[in-house]
Amino acid sequence: MTSGELDPLIHVPTRLKIVATLAALPDGDALSFTRLQDMIGLTPGNLIIHLRKLEDADYISSEKTRNGAVSITTVALTGHGRAALGTYTRALRDLLGGLPI
């Protein structure tokens, strides 16, 4: 196996951080955009670009709710995204299996 076989959608530092952060939540739970931004350390614009790519692939889902005058966006990892991260992790393990760590 080569690094070229790793899921190109996840194999990007920022998107890997997003997916790994959301995967630490229990299945079905969502994280607010602002908290995710705070944890990842990205500008809103940059984070939106990466989230859109992941959402297009159905790895994450986002929801916008209104609480009075405040609009809150939440992001969650889908079952498909969790499975993709699992496959990516196994592929990484296989790749690194023969290498000194």
């Binding site: 690094s3 194999h11 530092p13 951080k17 670009i49 992790t89 990484l92 790749l95 690194l96």
Partner: peptide, 22 residues
């Protein structure tokens, strides 16, 4: 961990770095 890409692909992101970051 420094982000080596913005919205693009993995570039020179090698598997060892990916494992450490994950």
């Amino acid at each position: 961990t420094p982000d080596t890409t913005t919205a693009g692909n993995g570039g020179n992101f090698d598997p060892q770095q990916a494992a450490a970051l994950l």
